[in-house]
């Protein structure tokens, strides 16, 4: 796994699990590395910064809890994600929104969305 992938993967896995989206680890790793391979240096740098921020700094900053993202309770993770999405600081929200396309792109794939639609038919 690439150095960037190694930093982002735990967040991507926790993010998917939190949303109740089942993705096998090897599939998630492969998709993530595929995305990273197509990303430029600027994006990769932002992914690293944002992943570290969400995983380690954001729980302290937004919830006052010195726990990693994966170690938070489900309710705390939901609240943290909500606060990241709604951060009024353009810098903080920009940092988070820099990685959101990667995380949501890994989870809410066209295949996932089609399955969700078919599940209701």
């Amino acid at each position: 796994m690439s150095a960037v992938g190694a930093i982002v993967f735990p967040l991507a896995r926790s993010y998917a699990a939190h949303a109740g989206i089942e993705i096998a680890d090897d599939r998630l790793r492969a998709d993530l590395e595929g995305r990273l391979a197509g990303a430029g240096n600027l994006s990769r740098g932002l992914f690293v910064g944002a992943a570290l921020f969400v995983r380690a700094a954001a729980p302290v900053l937004f919830l006052g809890k010195p726990l990693g993202f994966s170690a938070l309770s489900s309710d705390d993770r939901e609240e943290l994600l909500r606060r990241l999405q709604c951060a009024r600081s353009p810098l903080l929200r920009g940092l988070y929104l820099g990685i959101k396309p990667l995380l949501t792109g890994l989870c809410y794939t066209p295949e996932f969305l089609k399955r969700a639609a078919e599940a209701r038919v």
């Binding site: 949303a19 939901e78 909500r82 990241l84 999405q85 959101k100 396309p101 949501t104 792109g105 794939t109």
Partner: peptide, 14 residues
Amino acid sequence: LELAAMSMPFEGRE
């Protein structure tokens, strides 16, 4: 489709 989730003003389970 691959960008739809990114543009919604929600996160997490919501």
